[in-house]
Design a binder for these strands. Structure first.
Lengths: 345, 345
DNA sequence: TTGTACGCGTTATCAC
DNA sequence: GTGATAACGCGTACAA
């Protein structure tokens, strides 16, 4: 059962390939009804499906983009991806998804392979370690948008959270609620990981701006697996801060595990606030005050910029999206009657 | 800056296209070192990248598969997808991801377009409403694996949770813990949605097998948005069951929201158990007893089967994967000292 | 060891 | 209105 091609259709309909091609591309203008009918019948009878590959070869467009992320399992990624896919669906584009696990080597390989596959553009959550390659992509005028992180030295469209503002919102709220002893929990400082760096630095600035000194012990920048021991140490020496700012969902989970282990009351024993609006924030007890990233908007903008790049010239632009502060109960004023808090003695 | 092709490389290296092709395909056997070197230099100098599209056209393989899911935002989907992508990465395959939102029309369109794009196979979370199309795919010997649901009348590889066993595990545990008044929370019954149907039916069977009668009021099969009012009604008439079985993560969230609203104590006021191991299960208070789906294994098997189909003949097979029971605190025996329970009066 | 010529399934350009 | 014919970029017999 060989694959049926345009030639087969043409033969059966007693016309030439070109006529069939015209028909498929709806260039009916000078086509007799009779011919149309015969072609339609032949297509139906042979169950003919045009081979998009051949068309792409000719037209130099695959209607496919590559999206390269660290890990599709992260909520941020999933949501951005969903928004991108929605946009692509509207344009009859397809999305190839790749996970790098933040490994530059995997990233390089994916970019190379997708490039070879002639994808029409890339949306990348960059590891930041393939600067030369990113440069080559730009030289080749390959549409490219960075999300979540930018890359120093590459002038490309980038869609990022306004990290500084996000931290400011959180710190300011804690201060307003009367907290002075505020800790931070984050993964290790790494210069090329923009969001992390920006958030850690913004935390220092924000405290200083409010006239609060930064207690070194309370700034935990550690691999996620080692965060528990750092928290334990503080607990054992009775030096817990009053409030903790978790810079993302992963670190938040560590904090909550710690809280549960010691049956601390939130917010009375420890106020908690985080960036990333985890799905259980509102059903957790107490409900969690969070600073949400506008993930769907990020994906939408990334896709829009990519399409703009594909349709001609646009100059690279940096988008800093506003975080959304979602007040719930986990960082309310201490001692305030907290309906949903839960303390056992 | 025209695209550089093999011909350009050949010219610069002073050899013919075929020699370059040989080189690229590592058929070095009869090639002089000198030639190799010249070709390598030319490739480097011109920044040549082979056009995989043209190759695919010739070789009838795109090294790309299509994965069509309801919604990438669901945890099940994301995890299965991650496993699939990992397998594909090992085989140098790429994954195109599509969201149908359970809309048959979108599904049809995606299948058509990806088919036209010559993908080498499909992994589908089927809406179940495109039976004729699935059949055509099989007739065309297009590799195809269903995940999460099967489709009646289509004899294809399918990877599903052993839903009946999952429900049995949960019900049996609840009974063992002394619960007799057990409710179910599920989306509306829909015949073609296999997991839902199987779980609801298995619930009835399991209760009967344990000599417990099924209280109609306690079996809530309702659109997620209407679940709250059903629960409210029970609460207001003081007819809550002792325990609730949530058949998936979405319904679990509704139950937990309800529990929070009325400040019920889990498990003393209401025991809770669910299928789908939500990420916060262990940090929630009390920690949640769940029945986990082996999502990564599901993805792995789906991909393996797809590759097997691509490599020749295999007969369609149904895989029923064992659920994993994860005992935590949310469905412990009533009155038992529950370290992590939390009750305020 | 290398080169020639053709095929893959389309589309675009002109003739007719 | 329709049909040849030449691309598109690569793989591959087969010839040299």
């Amino acid at each position: 059962m060989r694959k049926v091609t345009m030639a087969d259709v043409a033969k059966l309909a007693n016309v030439s390939k070109s006529t069939v091609s015209q028909y498929l591309n709806k260039r009916y203008e000078y086509m007799s009804e009779e011919t149309k009918r015969r072609i339609a019948e032949a297509i139906e009878e042979l169950q003919y499906r045009p081979n998009v590959l051949a068309r792409s070869l000719k037209q130099k467009s695959t209607a496919t983009i590559g999206v390269i992320v660290f890990n599709i399992l992260h909520m941020l990624t999933t949501q951005v991806l969903r928004a991108i896919e929605d946009m692509c669906q509207q344009h009859d584009f397809h999305v190839i998804v790749c996970n790098t696990d933040d490994d530059p080597e995997k990233e390089r390989k994916y970019i190379d392979m997708l490039w070879a596959k002639q994808v029409d553009g890339f949306i990348i959550f960059p590891t930041g370690k393939n600067v030369e390659l990113y440069k080559k992509m730009q030289e080749a005028r390959l549409p490219l948008v960075f999300v979540d992180r930018t890359v120093a030295g590459i002038d490309a469209d980038s869609v990022l959270l306004h990290n500084e503002r996000a931290v400011q919102l959180g710190v300011q709220y804690l201060i307003e609620q009367g907290y002075k002893h505020i800790g931070l929990v984050a993964p290790p400082f790494a210069p090329h990981v923009i969001p992390r760096t920006e958030r850690i630095e913004a935390f220092h600035h924000a405290l200083r701006d409010h006239g609060v000194s930064v207690e070194k012990e309370w700034v935990i920048t550690e691999h996620v697996k080692r965060i528990p021991e750092r928290l334990e140490a503080l607990f054992n020496s009775n030096k817990l801060p009053e409030a903790i700012f978790a810079i993302n969902d992963l670190t938040l989970m560590e904090v909550l595990a710690f809280v549960k282990k010691h049956q601390l009351a939130i917010p009375n024993d420890l106020a908690v606030i985080s960036i990333d609006d985890v799905p259980f924030a509102s059903i957790y007890t107490p409900s969690l005050t969070t600073i949400a990233q506008p993930t769907f908007e990020m994906g939408k903008i990334a896709a829009e910029r990519l399409f703009m790049q594909m349709n001609g010239e646009t100059s690279p632009q940096m988008f800093r999206l506003a975080p959304m502060f979602i007040e719930r109960d986990s960082a309310k004023k201490r001692g305030e009657k907290n309906e949903s808090s839960c303390h056992r003695s």
